[in-house]
Design a binder for these strands. Structure first.
Lengths: 152, 152
DNA sequence: GTCAGTGCAAAAGTTTTGCATACAG
DNA sequence: CTGTATGCAAAACTTTTGCACTGAC
């Protein structure tokens, strides 16, 4: 098993590689942002990420514009993924964990991650039927979690 | 089969019912907006909806604020659903068609709608395992459509 | 030294709010 | 009449851009 979640060093190498390949430069800001994203378990908005970075590395100024620019870069390289949670707007997550889907409680925001092989398999089959070359998918089950059901 | 897509009249009744139930008022604007949404096959942003409404009913002024307010109302009543398409931002769709999922081409934006019973069933099972009361789900397969594959 | 990257601030875009007026019930 | 709904404009947010300066290579 274990489709191996990369360690930070591995990830950093990958970033360097991407940068070199595109004639871009390795900067402190890009590295710090990657570091924070890597350590971030929850989903985050660009604004939240900005605050985390500033809080953790107060000695380096990182502008919100750089956050947006870096997120775009990382997203195009599939190192982060963006997910939309209805009313809460667009959020990002570290994109190289083991693949998983989300179950979201619309009352309290609780998020359960899960993987289901039957679903994954069907998806490939459907894509194939339509001669569609699949690059990824988003699957969210929305509802009310057990705790919130009690409270009603 | 046919889980019966409601006709416009039915839908309008439902709206009136919702309004009455919440002590809200039946207004021309709300009706026109519903009308346009009902006839709209594609997904739309609030701004696009606004333009469609103005274009189709030039005699009634409908402000963008009313569009947003009405979309919120309809969304909370599950009469429209919002879907997020990554880079394209938040879009809405008429929420009472027969349920379907989306397959989206990231090159040309082509959207194929589909339903798969195996997936639907597994979803319910997963929700049950977590004592989760399911209210809906979002499932999008992203990739490259057949046409776009040719073009590369 | 060169050229991409950065912070900052301004601009552009999106969504929400306040308020006086209109109008449904 | 009463109180919700509306349009408009202002405000609040979110995201992108322009520019002069910095710093990686």
């Amino acid at each position: 098993m274990s489709s191996s979640i990369p360690g930070y060093e591995e990830l950093l190498d990958r970033l360097k590689q991407v940068l070199r390949r595109n004639g871009l430069k390795h900067t402190v800001q890009r590295e710090l942002i990657l570091r924070v994203i890597y350590d971030c378990d929850e989903h985050f908005s660009p604004e939240e990420l900005h605050q985390k970075v500033q809080h953790r590395f107060p000695d380096t100024r990182v502008g919100i514009a750089t956050i947006y620019r870096t997120l775009s870069l990382l997203e195009s390289e599939k190192m982060v993924t963006s997910v939309s949670f209805g009313v809460n707007g667009k959020k990002y997550e570290f994109g190289m964990k083991h693949h998983h889907d989300h179950m979201i409680c619309d009352h309290c925001g609780l998020m359960i991650e899960f993987v289901d092989n039957t679903i994954e398999t069907r998806q490939s089959a459907i894509a194939q039927e339509h001669r569609f070359e699949i690059t990824g998918h988003i699957m969210q089950i929305h509802g009310v979690c057990h705790d919130c059901q009690q409270k009603d």
